[in-house]
């Protein structure tokens, strides 16, 4: 059995037929080959599977694909436009805000969502917004520096 969901992913409207028991993460990675979204635990504890649903960061392993029906989804693949990185991605490159890169899609998406809502967050607000995403490499100091760089408040 499948259900049809009508969704917009990275600006492309599409209708897809999916097994209703699949998570949004599984559909993104396995049906649509959008493998930039990562799975680190599958049970909502590590934050690496964050995508934006109607602009809000959501751990995609915890929602079913059907929850994407009628939604506007953004994954890391949609951030760069015409070969240009978005400002958060560029700041991550400039400051070296990643190491193994496995949490980077989630970090970049969450920081992008934060800055859309609050273009001038202070350090505590940035930490709160990114506090649910683990980075075992410990890139946190440079991630913080990168997000603050985008606000124009950095040194």
């Amino acid at each position: 059995m499948t259900i049809r969901i009508d969704t917009t992913i990275n600006g492309d409207r599409m209708e897809i037929d999916v097994d209703p028991t699949l998570t949004l993460l599984e559909v993104l990675r396995e049906n649509l080959f959008l493998s930039g979204t990562k799975e680190g635990c599958g049970v909502g504890e590590c934050g690496t599977c964050v995508v934006l649903v109607d602009g809000e960061p959501v751990t995609s392993c915890l929602v079913l694909a059907g929850d994407g029906d009628g939604a506007n989804l953004e994954t890391v693949e949609g951030l760069a436009q015409n070969g240009e990185l978005n400002e958060v991605q560029q700041a991550f490159v400039n400051t070296g805000a990643f190491q193994c890169g496995f949490c980077t899609p989630a970090m970049v998406l969450s920081a992008t969502a934060l800055l859309r809502d609050n273009p001038q967050p202070d350090e505590e607000e940035v930490k709160k917004a990114l506090g649910g995403i683990l980075c075992r490499c410990g890139a946190y100091p440079k991630i913080l520096e990168a997000v603050i760089e985008v606000t124009g408040e950095g040194a």
């Binding site: 493998s35 990562k38 991550f92 990643f98 890169g101």
Partner: peptide, 22 residues
């Protein structure tokens, strides 16, 4: 020098292919 990492763009765009992506 503080050369930007050569894996920068692959990693911030989600294009990097990890073992789990194979």
């Amino acid at each position: 020098s503080r050369v930007a990492r050569v894996d920068s763009v692959d990693k911030v765009t989600g294009h990097a292919v990890y073992g789990v992506d194979v």
